[in-house]
Design a protein around this nucleic acid. Structure first.
Lengths: 140, 140
DNA sequence: CGGAATCCTGTACGATACTG
DNA sequence: CAGTATCGTACAGGATTCCG
C-alpha cells in the first residue's frame, strides 16, 4: 500500500519532510479528512460541481438526486469551510447563490479519481465476492 | 477531475469500454462502493492490515485505537464479504483467527494512497481554510 | 430563491454480558 | 480467544415550516 507517513525509507522522492516523527497525529488527521471528505454527499456534490462548473443552489439539488435541502446546505457549508468550494452570493431581488470548485476542490477530485477508477475496475470482483460470501454463509 | 464514466472523449488510454451508455447506474454503484469503503474504520483496518500483514483479531483491535470489538467484527466481516480481507480460522483449543488483505484489498490500499497523499499535501490548506472560514463567519 | 429552525425517526455505535 | 446477542443512546439526516 505504501502509505506515506509510515514510510521508514529515508529516500523520499516526494516533497515531504522526514516522516520519522509525526506518525500518530498526522495519521489521525489525514484519516479524519478522508472520512469527512469521502461521505456520500460530498463526493456526489464534488462530481456534480466538477461536471457542471458554476452552479446555483437549486440546480445543484437537481443534479444530486435524492439529496435533501438540509444535507445540500450542510454539505456545501462544510465543503466551503474546508476550502473545497467557493460560494458567491449575488445581492439581487431574487436571491442567487452560485457554487463552484476551488482549485483545492478540483485537486481533490483528481486525487479521488484513482479510487474511482479502482472502484470501476473492481466492482465486478466485489459483487462476485459478495455473492460467494453469501453462498458460503448458507444464505437464504 | 476527469471522472471516468462521464468522459465523452472516445480516445481512452485506460482499459475501459465505451462509457457512453452506462453513466447512471455505474456511477451510483461506484459511489456506493466508495462510500462503503471509505468509512473511518475500514480505512484504519486496511492500513493496520497492510502494515502488519497477517494479524489476529485481538491484535488488530490493539492496532486500531479506539475501535470497539463490535465495530471490529462488523467491519472485518464486511471487508471479508467484499473480498478485501481473507479470514482464516484455526480449529484449535484456544481459537485463533487470522486476517490478511487479499490482492483486491491491497489494490484498494494503493488506490487510496493517492487520496492519502492529497490529504497529506493539503491538510495545511484545509486547516487554514477552516480558520479563515471561522473568522469570516464571526466566530467565537 | 436560498436558506435557517424545528421536529422526529432510523440507526450507527459503544458498553455489557454470554457462548463455544 | 473470538466472537454473537442485547440494550441504550447519541446523532445523522429527512420532512416540514418559516424568513430575508
Amino acid at each position: 500500500m505504501d502509505m506515506p507517513g509510515k514510510n521508514d525509507s529515508p529516500s523520499e522522492q516526494e516533497s515531504s519532510p522526514n516522516w520519522s516523527a509525526i506518525d500518530p497525529k498526522v495519521t489521525t488527521l489525514v484519516n479524519d479528512i478522508i472520512a469527512r471528505v469521502a461521505d456520500k454527499w460530498t463526493l456526489l456534490i464534488l462530481e456534480a460541481l466538477d461536471e457542471n462548473g458554476v452552479t446555483r443552489f437549486k440546480q445543484l439539488g437537481r443534479l444530486v438526486p435524492g439529496i435533501s435541502q438540509k444535507m445540500l446546505t450542510q454539505t456545501l457549508r462544510q465543503m466551503e469551510c474546508d476550502g473545497l468550494v467557493l460560494r458567491t452570493v449575488y445581492a439581487e431581488v431574487p436571491p442567487r447563490v452560485e457554487y463552484q470548485l476551488t482549485p483545492l476542490g478540483e485537486s481533490l477530485g483528481e486525487a479521488f479519481c484513482g479510487v474511482w477508477k479502482w472502484a470501476e475496475r473492481h466492482h465486478a470482483e466485489i459483487e462476485a465476492a459478495r455473492k460467494r460470501f453469501a453462498e458460503g454463509q448458507g444464505k437464504d
